[in-house]
């Protein structure tokens, strides 16, 4: 059903439209002069000024893997992040930890852990779903590369970005 929209009846003064134009120009010129006179700050001048110091605590940058204070790689390759990842950016190949390893009791670790940063949408679901507190979104935001291959972060690169994170729940303690 078509809906008939009632048009307001305009007065003669309004029908001239000139006052409306003047009103509109007051708005636009108001913004113009505020910006030109510097009363209002527009935005960060990105390449000269960097975000680094200004990023909020909860900023979601590049996802990365972390090791803990015991120098253990926290990821156990449960593949939950691979499962939850909306753009399917994560690919994990799990492997068994050899029995002579210091952390053999953890049994499982990633053999390969790839995040395709062209696909990544920085949603943070991987961090949220991780049962081992192994993947975090760090503050790295300028992820660039000159080829598609370069934009796939492998395990080494992910640990390089992630670094060591202390104060996490230590599930695999000596009682385990």
């Amino acid at each position: 059903m078509a809906i008939v929209v009632k048009r307001p009846k305009l007065k003669l003064w309004e029908q001239l439209y000139l006052p409306a134009i003047a009103k509109g120009m007051r708005v636009t010129l108001g913004h113009f002069f505020k910006i030109v006179s510097g009363k209002k700050k527009v935005t960060m001048q990105y390449p000269e000024e960097k975000w680094d110091e200004h990023l909020p605590e909860h900023y979601r940058g590049a996802p990365a893997l972390v090791t803990d204070e015991q120098d253990r790689e926290r990821c156990v390759a449960c593949q939950l992040c691979e499962f939850i990842c909306p753009p399917r950016a994560i690919t994990i190949k799990p492997e068994e930890i050899p029995s002579d390893d210091q952390w053999a009791k953890v049994e499982k670790r990633p053999k390969a852990f790839d995040i395709d940063m062209i696909r990544c949408i920085y949603c943070g679901l991987c961090e949220e779903v991780c049962p081992e507190q192994a993947i975090f979104l760090r503050k790295d935001y300028a992820i660039t590369g000159t080829s598609r291959e370069e934009m796939v972060h492998d395990k080494e690169k992910l640990y390089e970005i992630g670094g060591v994170r202390v104060g996490l729940v230590n599930k695999w303690n000596e009682l385990k």
Binding site: T28, H31, F32, I35, K40, V42, T43, Q45
Partner: peptide
């Protein structure tokens, strides 16, 4: 530049 200033951009 003017359109940017009107729209609070640079």
């Amino acid at each position: 530049r003017v359109s940017a200033a009107i729209q609070d951009r640079v």
